[in-house]
Computed example of a mutant assay.
Amino acid sequence: MLDIADELRAWYAAQREFALATVVSVTGSAPRGPGASLAVDHRGTALGSLSGGCVESAVHELCLEAIASGKGGLHRFGYSDDDAFAVGLTCGGVLDVLITPVRGDDPVRPVIHRVLDVTAGGARAALARVVSGPQEQLGRALAVHADGSYEGGLGAGPALDRAAARRIRGLLAAGRTGTAELGTAGGLCGEPLTLLVESAAEPPRLLVYGAIDFAAALARIGAFLGHRVTVCDARPVFATPARFPDADEVVVDWPHRHLAAEWDAGRLDPRTAVCVLTHDAKFDVPLLELALRLPLSYVGAMGSRRTHTERARRLREEGVPDAALARLRSPIGLDLGGATPEETALAIAAELTAVRHGGSVRPLARSTGPVHRRAKVP
C-alpha cells in the first residue's frame, strides 16, 4: 500500500470508496515483493501494480466485487503448466494477494487513513492487516507508531492488539515489510493468526566518506537507487554542496567522529551502507575500526590491493579481529572492468545491491533459479 501512498491520500481527500489488493507473499519468481499494491475505486480506476501485468485483470475484477459486497479475502495466483496465460504468472511464481474493501463504513478505512497521514509527514508507522485466521477478523487493521502506540484493532480484544503492536514495532524498527504470526489470544496463545505488516521507514542511509570525484558519481547513483546520501570529509574546501548536488547532505567533519555521532544519535540502522573513498590511513583506519564493529549492511573501502593489505595490517594492530575484517569489501566494488568515476560508482552500487539481495553476481544467462530475489536485509 505504501508504494501508492500519495495517490491514496488523494482518493481519501475525494472521499472515494475503493478496494486494496496487496501482495502478502511470493513463492518462486515474481516481479514484485510483499507490500506491492493495486487499488481500484468504485468506478474501476486503478492505481499501482502487483505483478507487472500478470494478474492485474483478475485482481481488478475481485476488487470491484469486494467493493460491492464488502467482503475481501486472500487469493492465490500461480503458474499453470496447462495454460500459462490463464490467470497466473507466466514467469513461474506464486502470489498470495490480500484484497481489502475500504468503503465509507468499513472499520479498516480510518486506520489506513491514519497511516497515510502520519507517514506523509515523514514519521515512521506500520499498517498490519489480518491475512489468515477467524473469518470475522480477516482484513481487520492495526496502525502502529514508532513509540509503540497503536490505533484500530484486530477484532479479538485489547490483549491481541497489545501483543500484535509489540511484534509489529520490531518490524517497523527494522523497516521491514512481511508477515508476522501470533495467536488470537495474544502471543502464541489461541487460534493461529497471520498479519501482513507494511512498514513506512526512512530510506536506507548511504554514507560516503571522501569528497572526491568518485564520491560525486556514487552520490548520484545512490540517490537514484533510493538511498539517503551523506558525503563527509574533514576538508572544508572539498566538502561543499556545490560539488555534490545529488547528496542529501554534505558534512565537514572527521569521518570516524561523524560516524560515531550518527550511530549514537540513532540515525543509522542495519540497512546502512558505508563507502570509504579516502584511501588515506589517517582517515581510513579509525573510521573502518568503528564501522566494522557496527551492525551495518555494507562496509567498503577504495584502494589498490597493496593499499588494502597495508590497511588490513593497521586495522589488526588496532585490535580489529579477522572476523570483522572479513566483512570489509576492499578493494570496493565488483569487477566490471571500468575505471571512470561513473563506472566505479556503478561497480560499487552493483556490489551493494548484490549484498543486500543475496545476489550471486553471476550473469543471469549462466545461472539457475529464480530471476527475482527478495531482500536479505531490511
Rank of each mutant, 00 (worst) to 15 (best):
G73T: 11
V237R: 14
Y150S: 05
C54L: 11
V115C: 15
A261H: 14
A58C: 10
S199H: 05
R316H: 07
R257Q: 13
P378Q: 07
A30K: 03
P295I: 10
R373F: 07
F77Y: 15
R257P: 02
A215P: 02
G178E: 13
L138E: 03
G187C: 08
C189L: 15
T177I: 10
G210N: 02
G153R: 03
K376S: 10
S49N: 02
C54Q: 02
P134T: 09
S360T: 15
P204I: 03
P378K: 00
C63Y: 03
L225G: 02
R311T: 10
K282W: 05
E342A: 14
E151W: 08
R114E: 15
T340S: 14
V94I: 14
D264H: 13
V276D: 07
L364C: 08
A350T: 00
G155R: 01
I212W: 03
L2M: 02
P192W: 03
S25V: 04
E65N: 15
I221N: 08
F238K: 05
M302W: 14
G28D: 02
R243Y: 12
S80N: 12
P295A: 01
L172S: 05
L346R: 02
G300L: 10
R257H: 05
T179F: 04
G53T: 00
R176M: 04
R267H: 13
V40N: 11
I67M: 01
E181N: 05
L116D: 07
A14H: 09
S25H: 12
A261L: 09
A185D: 14
G210A: 13
G72R: 13
G226E: 03
A66Y: 09
G88D: 12
L47K: 05
C232G: 07
A36I: 05
G72D: 00
R329C: 14
K376D: 13
S360F: 01
H308M: 11
E7Y: 02
L154F: 01
A211N: 03
R140I: 01
R114V: 08
A312Q: 13
L315S: 04
E191K: 12
L290I: 01
A5P: 10
L294P: 06
G178M: 04
I212G: 15
P236W: 00
V94Y: 05
A291N: 02
T344Y: 01
E289Q: 06
R362F: 04
V355G: 03
L294E: 09
H372K: 01
R76T: 15
V208P: 06
R205S: 09
R176W: 11
H227L: 08
R129L: 04
K71C: 07
D6H: 09
L38D: 13
G148N: 09
T368Q: 13
S51A: 07
D41W: 09
R271I: 02
Y12M: 00
P363Y: 05
P241K: 10
W254K: 04
A19Y: 06
I348P: 00
I212L: 15
G178N: 11
G72N: 12
F238M: 12
V274L: 14
V144K: 10
L74S: 07
R169K: 14
G210Q: 07
